[in-house]
Design a protein around this nucleic acid. Sequence first.
DNA 1: TAGATTGTTAATCGATTAACAATC
DNA 2: TAGATTGTTAATCGATTAACAATC
Lengths: 258, 258
Amino acid sequence: MARQARSEGDRHSVAPDDRAQPEKGLPAAVVARLTIYLRALNSFLADGVDRVSSDALAEASGVSSSTLRKDLSQLGSYGTRGVGYEVENLLQHLSAALGLTRDWRVAIVGAGNLGRALARYGGFGTRGFDVVALLDTDPQIIGNEIGWLRVTDAANLEAVFERTRANMAVLALPASVAQSVCDRVVAAGVRSILSFAPTILQVPPGVTLRKVDMATELQILAYHAQRGESGGESGQPSAAAAHTQAHDDAARHRGPSA
Amino acid sequence: MARQARSEGDRHSVAPDDRAQPEKGLPAAVVARLTIYLRALNSFLADGVDRVSSDALAEASGVSSSTLRKDLSQLGSYGTRGVGYEVENLLQHLSAALGLTRDWRVAIVGAGNLGRALARYGGFGTRGFDVVALLDTDPQIIGNEIGWLRVTDAANLEAVFERTRANMAVLALPASVAQSVCDRVVAAGVRSILSFAPTILQVPPGVTLRKVDMATELQILAYHAQRGESGGESGQPSAAAAHTQAHDDAARHRGPSA
DNA sequence: TAGATTGTTAATCGATTAACAATC
DNA sequence: TAGATTGTTAATCGATTAACAATC
């Protein structure tokens, strides 16, 4: 007999709507773009450029200069009219706004193919993120050395998180165990989670979960590819699919009142 | 003189709205959510559930039922008032809308740690995506067998893409070579690219590029973590950071005229 | 100064939500 | 029928764009 799916009440709808409203916070779309600007600025810095206009930075970032200036103006007034922005200075302010001036301690849970690849990916893109632990349940894998780390037993997850004072977790797990491990990670006090597990996860309010998933990305590509085809390869531009940097901007976060 | 609005005589009231418009396409945010619904529906299906209400599906997907119904109604009228949606039926329609009823041939360029992990990740999340090639430039790696595949020489990229008729590419490359390889992939005729390279890439109109990047994700987490802290761990809910599934919805695509 | 470019405003555009009539 | 739930409309909310006054 097929069960009827029920709405299961609310797992976390309590939402005291406390109204204190201390600070609004940046819109999610803006935060996502700040990371792009950061990368573009680093690239300018590496090229020895020490000053950029909003036009140049916007072009390098793939956004309009209007959007760029609006975004930056939400952080403060870090440019000079008639001149532009100092690369190094703006980099500082962006880093500060994103919370990158401190170190974050990341534990990777799951040392399969993907977990190991992530652990070995030393640079971690930008400095500021230290991988402090790599956990797995497989006895064949526990104890192995990957990069700088030794794989520890996920059975001791709580102890490992406490010892390493990990405050971010990356989940590189099969879908089947992702939710239960996620729950343990949350119970261990972690409030920032990045999941590569191909499944929807539920977390309580106050925990930020982001999700990266190749299947999803390919599905979205498929949608656009399908659309781009109908017009034929005849060069008809109006039939062409969308293009250009489609980062994961505008990630939606529901506020604590949701 | 502005023409007076005419009452238009109600000749044919329910204007079929068959505007010239070659088809507007779904908003990016909607497409992203469709992939989530797809996953949630598959999970219901696996649980033997064969009918869901918008409420139940919305909850499982982490969206409001209003949004869910609005999204689905853009595809057509696939529910039954008073009853709900048939899981299998809706799954069909979503798959069709996303272009998942055909097979896509994916070439992975870069067989380093990440590329190998992606190649081995056989299931590829959902069926419909066949990995047809895995390329690298490293002589130490070329010829190795990874999963079902043998690593081929990226020097022959064009030939390999033609032979395998790859129509999607996954870039798992260092930033330094990403743009030039990307250009070659585009020149080879691929119009759908998923990049894991930690750099901003430029592609011409008509090519859809999506980007996945751990550094970016961690930076966004850092922003929220930083915010969530000021209130202290004292359980003050209004100080809590955002929470819940933050998929990469709402990816921005600029139109071909940009 | 004259030229350049920011920061900001107002207008536009798009997406989400609430509510309810349609209808199974 | 009475109850349930969709599909859709109108209202709200938020984000992007264009334009320009401020100002270096």
